[in-house]
Design a protein around this nucleic acid. Sequence first.
DNA 1: TTATCTTATATCTAACTGATATATATCACT
DNA 2: AGTGATATATATCAGTTAGATATAAGATAA
Lengths: 190, 190
Amino acid sequence: MKRENMTRFAILGLISKQPMSGFDIKKAVDQGIGYFWNESYGQLYPILKTLAAEGLVEMAIEQTSGKPDRHVYSITSTGLQELRSWLMRPVEAQRVRNTLLLRLFFGDNVPTTVSIQQIEGVCNFSRGLLAQFEQLEPIFKQRPAFEYITLMFGMTYHKTIVEWGEQAIQLLQQQPSTKSNKKQRSGRKS
Amino acid sequence: MKRENMTRFAILGLISKQPMSGFDIKKAVDQGIGYFWNESYGQLYPILKTLAAEGLVEMAIEQTSGKPDRHVYSITSTGLQELRSWLMRPVEAQRVRNTLLLRLFFGDNVPTTVSIQQIEGVCNFSRGLLAQFEQLEPIFKQRPAFEYITLMFGMTYHKTIVEWGEQAIQLLQQQPSTKSNKKQRSGRKS
DNA sequence: TTATCTTATATCTAACTGATATATATCACT
DNA sequence: AGTGATATATATCAGTTAGATATAAGATAA
């Protein structure tokens, strides 16, 4: 099972909606689907070229005044086929790396208050996102269900984080003090 | 903001619990914290050497019969300091890449049934994990709260996915037929 | 006037994944 | 006894990805 280049499909999908330049794509990712996807220029520009060489996208140069020319890419029928074929392939296993959970798992090396603050920080971040999502919801509700359900996911996900966080903090506070609970008197190399 | 090598801290954290070889660490990750973390040999072995060179871990060779010698690493006091300092640093922004949501977002390029099946697939995966977690729960409940709350997270998270998935499928089924709903009559290059 | 932000393409390094190489031991099945 | 699959164990390679930086000009703000 070769590791697949996902940027290809993100690009194909986005320009299937409308022709875009690399810069546009970056913006569309950050501002449109940033809550479940990310892309970097370091991937976008080289892969746009590859896709063009493979005939999956077509490039047209748009002159600008002063600024670098815009390379506007649009999807070809081969590209659309490639996109459809990926859309139908089973979802690939996603590798997770949650740095909050990793920290919590090693939490007995620091005072409990540290772990609690870390949870609070992440919960507050989620609360902020939730507020944004709630504002976006009426707009998304009028869009195709395909897009609305992705926002739904974001909302449910971050709601869950907040609820879990509150529970987790309670549990940690009830916890009997651990070895490094008060002041973390070091030198526990026995 | 330099991109940080997280493998370092995963290693330090794990061997802070007990000395381990690279192979042991890989097992501990896969079998112990695989629901929120992953590591590959391609990172582990080189970084263990780096950490040893930096004096954050110590290596002892354990002879075996036939099989390659075990390189067993344990954490030093400098290493423990480094781990603690990381545990106290604010949680870094996590980059998400959800290939299910990406597919759904582009779902109008394929029949709705495809999107529904994709959601079902992921939900079933989560259901399987949930069943495993429920078996693990009594064991984790007796462990330090630090570890238990990470399992709690996994359970809440996958429960949420299943609930969201069921809602999302309902919404897609109610949906008026889209351009490529029935048989996907191609050639929409207009 | 200076600073920073936005537009726009491009590239580099470090981080990371998945696959593969090497070599032995063990267990199940035929 | 022989075959194949799996487990132990270290190691490295090629491809993927993120984040930073380079370049350059116009727009906006301090």
